[in-house]
Computed example of a mutant assay.
Amino acid sequence: MKKFYAARPLLGLLFVFSVGTVKAQQDVGDLFVSGPADATKLVNAYFDPLYKGLGVGLSDGWNNTARSKGLFKFDVRVSASAAFVPQSARSYDVNALGLSNIKPAAGSSSIGPTAFGADEEGGRMQVYTSSGVPTGKFFNLPQGVGFHVVPSAQIQATLGLPKNIDVSLRAMPKIKLGSDLGSLSMIGFGAKVELLPLFMGNSERLVPVDIAIAGGYTQYKYNLPLNIDNTANSDQRIDAKFSGVNFDAIVSKKIMFFTPFASVGYQTSKTDLKALGTYSFATSATTSATYTDPIAVKQTDVDGLRGSIGFQLKFGFFKFYGSYTAAKYSMVNAGIGLGIGQ
């Protein structure tokens, strides 16, 4: 079976931090034959849980305690999140997408799995011309990966500054994942302010907990050169940006080496994905179509409140983290850290 080339780059990004082999999928050329508008709608429907799952994961794992670090104290942490795809987001109905030139073939289902749906092909589709004439082209909706968790990862360094402020950096230089998976980079910035010392100074605290406000911004960039049925069109590529912003109020209580915490906040995430270049396809035995920059996705995927509970364990220089977050997609986060100070 031909591979679904639109799926490979995004799933490649996903599996940098996880497991598995990208499933063989239907050639994206079959989608382009129907025109960029229909192709964009199908790509959006198929990858919707990836957009949302990665969106909530981007802003996860910034803080596991409200207490700020001492001046110039620091730590480095690596953590991973898993966002759970609900049942309603594991499939889609092409009849609900408003497609112009694609319809289910006679006697075929209109349902297809999303990227995190069942590991089986969806219904068989037939492609029509803009005037409603069948082109003779058929394809099956692409299959899912067979599991329902969207993973993401965070690599973060945090430094304590004056006035009970922490600043954090998330960074990964551009790395090449191989000729089939393109390149990936990450950048992010965050800050946290512990509130009670601002009002109570260093005197004995009347409130037996730590309280802070925090915020962060994270962005993944992904690029993949393509060569889809067009060896002469070397400008084909996928350019994608996934960005997330969060603001949180945090309360925690240190009990020896154990620090439980809870937080409430707001998060938003956006996807900006483009299939760029020139793509030419045969639409019949005697006709062809050429599309330039055929797919453009620019949208807000997550925009709402979230709540988290979790803990930090500290043993000397080593720290262990864990948390659960209720948001657009619920998720868990776990990680380890190494550093000096709280």
Rank of each mutant, 00 (worst) to 15 (best):
R205Y: 03
K2T: 11
A118H: 01
F257T: 13
S59Y: 00
S110E: 08
Q87V: 13
L169F: 12
Q87S: 13
R306H: 01
A105E: 12
D180T: 09
A115W: 00
S323A: 09
N233A: 09
A45L: 07
S131F: 15
P9H: 05
T21D: 12
D239A: 10
P104R: 05
F147A: 08
D303P: 08
G265P: 05
G215M: 05
K314W: 06
T231R: 13
D180G: 06
M186N: 13
N202Q: 10
A326M: 14
E204G: 10
I211R: 12
V251T: 14
I250M: 04
L276R: 14
G29R: 03
S284Y: 07
S59C: 11
V19R: 14
N101M: 12
F47A: 02
V302H: 04
L58G: 01
S263H: 13
F311K: 11
A153Q: 09
T271Y: 05
F74S: 06
F320Y: 15
V33A: 15
P104W: 00
A105Q: 09
A289W: 08
Y51V: 06
L10Y: 06
M200I: 11
V145A: 02
T40W: 04
K69F: 13
V16T: 12
N246A: 13
N63E: 09
P142I: 00
T158Q: 09
I165W: 04
G215D: 01
L169V: 07
F4Y: 13
N44W: 04
F247S: 11
P86T: 00
G178L: 03
A282W: 09
L14T: 09
Y279F: 11
Y324G: 00
K274F: 03
S243V: 04
Q219K: 06
G316K: 06
A37T: 11
K328G: 03
L273C: 06
V76D: 11
Y220I: 00
A45V: 06
V209T: 06
G146Y: 02
E120A: 10
K2S: 11
Q154T: 14
S34N: 05
F74A: 07
G190E: 02
A171L: 14
A115V: 01
V78L: 15
A105F: 08
I165T: 07
A153F: 03
I187S: 15
G216W: 02
Y217P: 03
W62M: 02
D303F: 08
A240E: 02
